[in-house]
Amino acid sequence: MAIRETQRRHEALGLDEDDLLRMYRHMLLARRVDERMWILNRQGKAAFVISCQGQEAAQVGAAYNLRPGYDYVYPYYRDAGIVITLGMTARDQLLSLLARAEDPNSGGRQMPGHFSSRELNIVTASAPIGVQYPQAVGSAMAFKMRGEDGVVLACGGEASTSEGDWHEAMNFAGIHDLPVIFLIQNNVYAISVPENLQVAGRIVDRAAGYGFPGVEVDGNDVLAVYKVAKEAFERARRGEGPTLIEAKTYRMTAHSSDDDDRRYREREEVEEWRKKDPILRFKQYLHGAGVLDDAKEREIEEEIRAEVDEATEYAENAPYADPESAMRYVYAEEE
């Protein structure tokens, strides 16, 4: 292999081989489910797809630090890698995509990508960009007021940092030293608007204005993201306040299944980034570290394919929500 990462970086981070394989599986499952969703969309079975492709390392690297069901997560619509790391399944994803009654996010009501799980403390997303941040700092404030050591992970793309909500939330987090991590996945495009036309200055520098640290990281390197996120989680748990992480990555697909990105970016640019595919990179690392060989790689691929096939079949055959139930899930119901 041309590029071999011979250092066993994971050991310094306290990760063993099982951890690495779990992370790899999470990334790969997120990718394969995503690919399947596009196919179902092209077959006319799914109305809309919004992808995580290219951002799996940023997502899994950060989410691997979460304590599921204890810490809180405010994902954004691309965060399949995060919810899968927390324990959501291929079935969950496809049931949501096809708007079936069993969809754990919303019983088939929300658009795809609006993740939600009470058990996993994944807070339901709203469609407007950036509204998760003020909610996230509110949850962080609650942890602080209760004297608990929970951490809130709030995610978004670089475009969301141009929203007023982000600013107000960042300021609030800074004033009150809240246990919250802002994970900005800078995938270069706000739909069609490139970063340089959308952000004046650098996102990571903005943290200083709110009085807490900002860290930039190679978002396509899962171990690098894991490392900076680990430090941020530890800081938050020690009561030292928020951290902004800007994970530099790239959106490998069009914005959504309703977008044609050939109108605003060159194919060469996309091809360049494909070479930096985070899954490819991690795979190379795992081979170099002796954690993965060709046989094991194939085995994992096959397991995941079977999982995605099973999930697709299950979701396609699952019933839609009963029309009688249309008015439910708008307000909290008595338990």
Binding site: S162, E163, G164, D165, W166, H167, E168, N171, L197, Q198, V199, A200, G201
Partner: peptide
């Protein structure tokens, strides 16, 4: 300066100012 409207406007002022 702590309001969202300020942030959105300052970002645009930076961009257009370039």
């Amino acid at each position: 300066v702590q309001t969202g409207a300020f942030h959105e406007a300052a970002n645009l002022a930076g961009l257009w100012g370039r």
